[in-house]
Design a protein around this nucleic acid. Structure first.
Lengths: 189, 189
DNA sequence: GTCGGGGTAGACAGATCTGTCTACCCGACC
DNA sequence: GGTCGGGTAGACAGATCTGTCTACCCCGAC
């Protein structure tokens, strides 16, 4: 088993702490020392599980990817079997996310803002966005959209816009407007 | 005259260098020392014009605000006198921006990702987004939209989504899709 | 011609960051 | 009972970061 995926209570604690701190304060603002201290782990243990900080950041993004993709799928499924309803329903995940306490935008967009193209962190972000768009495209195909690629991109554009506006804006109606706009675009496709 | 706005060749050099480095590498990745070295200025001069790094970051964002707002207005104006055409035409600024070499997304969103709510940098970002949305809302009013607030928000959502996707995506069609979606939403409003 | 303001050059302090290393502990398994 | 793997505790090195301070220079205004 690869050293990085080796399960361990200490590893979980590190990752949970990193998840909390990286999201709340940004990746570069949080030092390895702080994560070590707050996860109650020895420094040597940390570096046994994660060769370097960047590896931890990528694992953090893996964790976010799992969580967010699941929320999108759940929200879509909750809208019933109709793919068109699902394309609109997935925006409920956005509403829920923006309402959450300590919401601070999309973890991937935030992380990518701190790393340049070609770095592992940036690549992981691109892969995540591609995966989400691919999944949305699948729904668009099922929905019989004339141009599934364009519809998928338009909806993910609204999603990404909503994810960032949700934290950069006092008014809480960004998710609502995003969903309404999505409904209009889906209906027209 | 306030010490921060005092004009000076040295100050301009600092700000130009900061603009280039902050945008390309992220704010926290670029140290004050590097900006000082690359702008060819003495350290004391730097701290005479900018009491601290955060002041420089805010001035950098002021500069970005001027540039980006101008590009949006120019693109809108180029679409002719019809406010509806202008609401769609402003997306040409997005296309131009995404094509630019070294494009790395929205400077404001990137900067806000590195600072927490309540900081001057975060506040400056919120103010910028509010200003842009206010301007778009004015166009929406002129266009006779039924719900100018919702239309303005929907369009800025697409704009922000396009700004981030434009750098997180190999395919270059994000701006095109954003403009098409905007056209659909404007036509329906 | 003197004086002040803007600029230069760079040492320095103090904090912080990543990553390494040594030494020890403890429990499971052979 | 002995060994080995995972964990703990913390010193340490070396780089880097922000911000201060001293000392000097040059030019224009009075």
């Amino acid at each position: 088993m690869s050293p990085e995926a080796r399960p361990s209570a200490a590893r979980d604690r590190i990752l949970d702490t990193a998840f909390r701190l990286f999201y709340a304060h940004g990746v570069r603002s949080v030092g390895v020392d702080r994560i070590i201290a707050e996860s109650g782990v020895a420094k040597a243990t940390f570096y046994k599980h994660f060769p370097g900080k960047d590896d931890l950041v990528v694992s953090y993004l893996d964790k976010v990817d799992t969580a967010w993709s699941g929320q999108l799928r759940d929200a879509a499924a909750a809208a019933g079997p109709d793919p068109r309803a699902q394309l609109v329903g997935m925006f409920d995940a956005l509403t829920t996310a923006c309402r959450r306490d300590g919401y601070r935008g999309c973890a991937f967009i935030n992380a990518a803002a701190e790393y340049e193209a070609g770095t592992a962190v940036h690549d992981r972000t691109v892969a995540h966005k591609d995966a989400v768009r691919g999944w949305v495209r699948g729904l668009a195909v099922d929905a019989g959209a004339r141009d599934p690629d364009a519809l998928a991109r338009a909806l993910t554009l609204l999603l990404d816009g909503g994810l960032t506006s949700g934290t950069l804006d006092a008014a809480p109606d960004a998710p609502t407007v995003a969903k309404q706009s999505a409904a209009a675009l889906v209906a027209a496709a």
